[in-house]
């Protein structure tokens, strides 16, 4: 894959984001990453996807899980297991149940947007922070995107990033490589502005 070209496309994406969401740099990565994940799956109806994000916060599935299911999630999910080792050992179900409601959508159901939104915490292994801040941050991110989402220009810009990345053959990269390249570009462009 042409790395230089990929960087150029992502730079354009950051430019669009800076224009429409100048003060919301924390959403750049979740947006660009989701768009790349969808591009691999040949999904380009971005507006529909983003506008429906709040669906993931609705309780449409059965929320009441048995203790065994919750314990199994904490025991089998890498990182989460280590972070909550004490509660798992002591079978502190009250604490585990509380943390589960924030961690399951991110580390269990793995929505691309939520994964990217909590990327820093996931990398740093701060699973307790995800559990504590999940709902508030997810709701805030969706609310922050809404004003930019009302204009067609924003979607055209984002759509073009997805299509160009798909054309480049982004699917040959691993998930880790995709995340790294996007984060590098965002950090570089945001830093340029600050300087």
């Amino acid at each position: 894959m042409d790395k230089k070209r990929a960087e150029h496309i992502l730079d354009n994406g950051v430019k669009v984001l800076k224009e429409f969401l100048p003060l919301k740099t924390y959403i750049y990565f979740p947006l660009l990453y989701s768009i790349c994940v969808w591009a691999v799956r040949r999904i380009f109806d971005l507006k529909e996807r983003v506008l429906a994000w709040q669906v993931w916060l609705e309780p449409e599935m059965v929320e009441s899980k048995p203790d065994a299911f919750i314990l199994d999630f904490f025991e089998r999910t890498e990182g989460v297991r280590e972070a909550f080792a004490e509660e798992v050992r002591g079978k502190d179900m009250a604490a585990l149940r509380k943390a589960f409601s924030g961690l399951y959508p991110v580390c269990g159901l793995e929505d691309a947007f939520l994964l990217a939104l909590f990327q820093e915490e996931l990398e740093a292994g701060e699973f307790r922070k995800i559990a504590d801040e999940f709902r508030e941050r997810a709701v805030r991110a969706i609310e922050d995107i809404k004003p930019a989402g009302s204009g067609q220009e924003f979607w055209r810009g984002m759509q073009s990033v997805g299509m160009e990345m798909a054309k480049l053959g982004i699917h040959i990269l691993t998930d880790v490589q995709v995340r790294k390249i996007i984060l590098d570009r965002i950090r570089k462009k945001v830093k340029q502005d600050e300087d």
Binding site: V55, W56, E60, A68, F69, D72, G108, L109
Partner: peptide
């Protein structure tokens, strides 16, 4: 199933049953 979220939850239920 009606939504992707429910579908994924159902899949994780199958994984859980397998381990049990």
């Amino acid at each position: 199933l009606p939504t992707e979220k429910v579908l994924r939850d159902n899949d994780l239920q199958i994984v859980f049953i397998y381990t049990q």
